[in-house]
Amino acid sequence: MIKNILIIAFILIFSTLESSVLPVLIVPLIVISISIISHAKSDQLLIFFIGLIYDLILVNPLGLSSIIFLLSYLLINIYRKKFQQKNYLYVFIFTFIILFSFNYLENLQKTSLQIFLNTLLIFIILPIIYLLDNYLTKKNSYKINL
């Protein structure tokens, strides 16, 4: 629960920044990171709400990002084994494909080079989300043990 609230808070902050000053796609990268490390069914619901918040703040048609994010989750879930083997090339290629499709469907007109550079950020965001998830999961398990 705390993890979800924290992630929603991050999404609110980054969506606002993306809609005003940040020329990079941070929220889609956070969603991809969540999809890669996801181990709970509730993550689908979280991704659905992230999509809605993102659309509301960026003044996009409501629901479009949710569809793209959920389909990305499905795609990553199908190839989960490859991701669990920590195949960085796979992570990069998948992220690039998802961002490319996102750029096309949301009509953002970013160049391939911009998307390529944007994709590199996954190697910063993924470890942060992974560490945050690990930390909060451990904290939860301590509580249960006590």
């Binding site: 689908q44 619901l45 659905f48 999509g51 809605l52 048609p61 409501l62 629901g63 479009l64 949710s66 569809i67 959920l70 389909l71």
Partner: peptide, 12 residues
């Protein structure tokens, strides 16, 4: 969830 998103998209 995808179907709900589609409905939301159409409504919007």
């Amino acid at each position: 969830l995808v179907i709900i998103s589609l409905f939301i998209y159409v409504f919007d």
